[in-house]
Amino acid sequence: MTVTFDDILAARDRIAGQVDRTPVRYSRRLSQLTGAEVWVKFDNLHFTGSFKERGALNRLLQLTPDERKRGVVAASAGNHAQALAYHGARLGVPVTIVMPEGTPFVKADGTRAHGATVVIKGLDFTGSTEEAHRLRDEKGFVFVSAFDDEGIVTGQGVCALEFLEDAPDLEALIIPIGGGGLIAGCSVAARAMKPDIRIFGVEAAMYPSFAARRRGETPKCGGQTIAEGIAIKAVGEIPFAIADPLVEEVLVCQEADFETAVAYYATLEKTVAEGAGAGGLAALLAYPDKFRGMKVGLVLCGGNIDARMLAVVLNRELVREKKMIVYRILGDDRPGMLSKMSAVIGGLGGNIIDVVHNRLALDVPAKGAEFDIMVETRGEAHAIEIRHGLEEAGYELRMG
């Protein structure tokens, strides 16, 4: 079984006019930040918020009339689910989606809103897949894999076809890997259009299934990652066979890399990325020397992040940048202490966000207290200036 460039061209024609052609833009800010010439394809701007629409629609359009009537079932953490649900509703194909426990509400709610039946079952994608197979056998549904399906892979390849038509000078593509459908299809399309282009994959450190399989190892996968869209314990058989000879290297990124990438897309590009969707930028930030001076394309492949999680990520990035910091101060528990501390912080330009008194810590004198003062600063240098100011005023800082 294989996928050819002609298959991808046929998929493009099949889905034409039914899926948005997402914009490709040169990013001055990300280029200045990383030292590469960075181009971004904004697949988060699809109607359902991710790249999955091309593959899902292409696969649905290949169903026989009998299969359309029976309906389809799939396991998905959310993006494949929403794409199938939306296009299934358009085409009159009943869709049932099995989602793992802990799937972000925004993805589950979005799937239901498109008319699909949602079943929450399984601790992870593997468990959800087992339930989807059971429903296939019991109900007669057609199982549509999120990635291990030629129709899905060929549809996803249209992403790279569009990318290189809009940015033909690209020297490298960095593409997130979950089950492998996107990187498999994109690798075929990109190499057909530009044989010398370099393809890099990105995986979360908690789910390095493609990288481990390449080394002939059993992947050690598990844990709660912000990149839940690529939290797959086993890369698909079809995608791996296609992508393995075409992908130069798979870059494994830590949670902090994904968080920073999500934050930078929001603050620098003014766009919303989910953890997996920001994987390309995460790799570029984690491995800058590999790409410095190169023309690099990033597929921002999804923007379906829970609003609460986005807020958490943005605040955590402020903490990393020392733009939000907690000063833990040991002082006397008497009137006026807090106002004096506040005067020092305010006099140096810090903005107090929150204050917590701790009078019960046993390593604090009975007549004393710990003050945890959360302060907004202009950055690390300003945070250090405030710390020195508090110390010069005679306060004992335990951390900050």
Rank of each mutant, 00 (worst) to 15 (best):
M99N: 04
T96A: 04
A89I: 10
A85Y: 01
V106H: 11
R90C: 13
A89V: 09
P100C: 07
T117D: 01
A83Y: 03
V119M: 09
V118T: 02
V95N: 01
K121L: 10
F105A: 15
K107Q: 13
H114Y: 15
A85H: 04
R90D: 11
K121H: 15
M99E: 02
M99K: 08
H80C: 08
V98L: 03
G88C: 08
A89L: 08
G102Y: 06
Y86K: 14
R112H: 00
Y86A: 12
A113T: 07
K107E: 12
G115M: 09
T111M: 03
I97V: 13
P100R: 11
M99W: 04
T103P: 10
G102E: 05
A81C: 12
I97R: 00
T111W: 04
H80Y: 08
K121R: 15
T103F: 12
L84E: 02
A108K: 15
G102F: 04
V119L: 11
H114L: 06
G88W: 03
A116L: 11
V98Y: 04
H80K: 02
A116N: 09
H87T: 01
H114G: 04
G110W: 03
T96M: 03
T96Q: 05
Q82K: 10
H80T: 13
A85Q: 02
K107I: 12
G110E: 05
V98P: 01
V95R: 01
L84Q: 03
A81W: 11
T103L: 12
I120N: 02
A113S: 14
H114M: 07
H114Q: 14
P100V: 05
L91R: 13
P94F: 02
V95H: 01
Y86Q: 10
Y86H: 14
H87M: 00
V95Y: 01
I97W: 00
R112M: 00
A116D: 06
G102T: 07
G110V: 06
P100Y: 09
G92S: 11
T117R: 07
V98S: 03
H114E: 12
P100H: 10
G88D: 07
A83F: 05
K107S: 12
H87R: 01
R90F: 10
I97H: 00
F105V: 15
A89Q: 13
F105L: 15
V98F: 05
Y86T: 03
P104A: 13
I97L: 00
P94A: 05
Y86S: 10
A83H: 02
G92K: 10
A85D: 01
